[in-house]
Design a binder for these strands. Structure first.
Length: 280
DNA sequence: ACCTCGTCCTGGTTGC
DNA sequence: TGCAACCAGGACGAGG
């Protein structure tokens, strides 16, 4: 297991970076891994950023967004193992030096993360193409979710992982939300009754809110930018807990695969309805 | 349009 | 104890 930054983890990182970056000028930008900015040239990206000032650090779905004074925006996706820290560490892929003398390192063991510099007018169209509504915002309604699930024959969990349906859910919080909603991850998405969609809508918010309150999950050696750990991993109801008792009914948690992802659920609380056929 | 699968990548774990 | 095979999964592109 390693940290996989989903919405609560990215939000925790954003909240810690904001007070230390907002108002600061990027004195020096060093891109150490050319993959990071692909397909754009790394020197070009570094040069574009140097001398600019960070106005605000935002989050959209799983993206971190650094708005700069020039109008440019640096869009960072951490993918599997990306993270920021103010202490030197291994696997540094980029370094930002700020005008207060601090040094912010970007670390990414598996090098899936991406840095993208966008012009002001490119930003919103780019984000809108990638991300559906913010799950904790007012645009994410039960009716929206019903509309997005209603025409999809894929497994429910696969659709929840589609960032255009709702932005920010990943493998952990999808499993946790499905457990809370008592819905089997292999249910066909278009098979849900109205009350099941309403339940799911509500618990997606709950699961993510709990994650944010606990400052995200810390698995293995990951730490937030300030070096602290989250505690959400202590709150997992099903994720990674195959064989352990369900916190609701004590039946052993089962593990399966849904569209290539390890998936944990309670076979008793989250049954496939009799007569329904699992998707795929 | 939708769906599934392979790819990217590295380090930790598992199995012989 | 060594070492290779396997596993983890977010987003994306290919192919059905």
């Amino acid at each position: 297991m390693s940290l996989v930054p989903e919405l609560p983890e990215v939000e925790t990182i954003r909240a810690q970076l904001a007070p230390r970056l907002e108002g600061r000028t990027l004195v020096r930008v060093e891109i150490l891994d050319p993959r990071l900015t692909r397909p754009h040239d790394l020197f070009e990206v570094a040069e574009e950023l140097e001398g600019d000032r960070v106005l605000v650090v935002e989050r959209r779905g799983k993206y971190l967004l650094f708005r700069l004074e020039s109008g440019l925006a640096l869009l960072v996706h951490l993918r599997m193992t990306g993270g920021f820290g103010f202490s030197p560490t291994s696997h540094e892929r980029a370094v930002l030096e700020l005008d207060d003398g601090s040094r912010l390192a970007y670390r990414d063991v598996r090098r899936f993360g991406t840095w993208l510099v966008l012009e002001a007018d490119e930003l919103e169209p780019y984000l809108a193409a990638k991300n559906g509504p913010e799950p904790l915002g007012s645009r994410f309604t039960s009716a929206w979710l019903a509309g997005r699930l209603g025409h999809r024959r894929a497994p429910l969990k696969a659709v929840l992982l589609d960032q255009r349906v709702v932005a920010g859910l990943g493998n952990i919080y999808a499993d946790e939300a499905l457990w809370r909603a008592r819905l089997n991850p292999l249910r066909r998405a278009d098979d849900l009754a109205d009350d099941e969609v309403r339940r799911l809508h509500r618990v997606i918010r709950t699961a993510l809110q709990v994650g944010i309150e606990r400052q995200g999950s810390t698995l293995r050696d990951y730490t937030a930018p300030d070096g602290s750990s989250g505690s959400m991993q202590e709150e997992f109801r099903v994720y990674g807990r195959d064989g352990l008792p369900c916190p609701r009914c004590r039946a052993p948690i089962a593990k399966t695969r849904v569209s290539g992802r390890g998936s944990w659920f309670c076979p008793r609380c989250q049954p496939l309805p009799s007569g329904s056929t699992p998707s795929s």
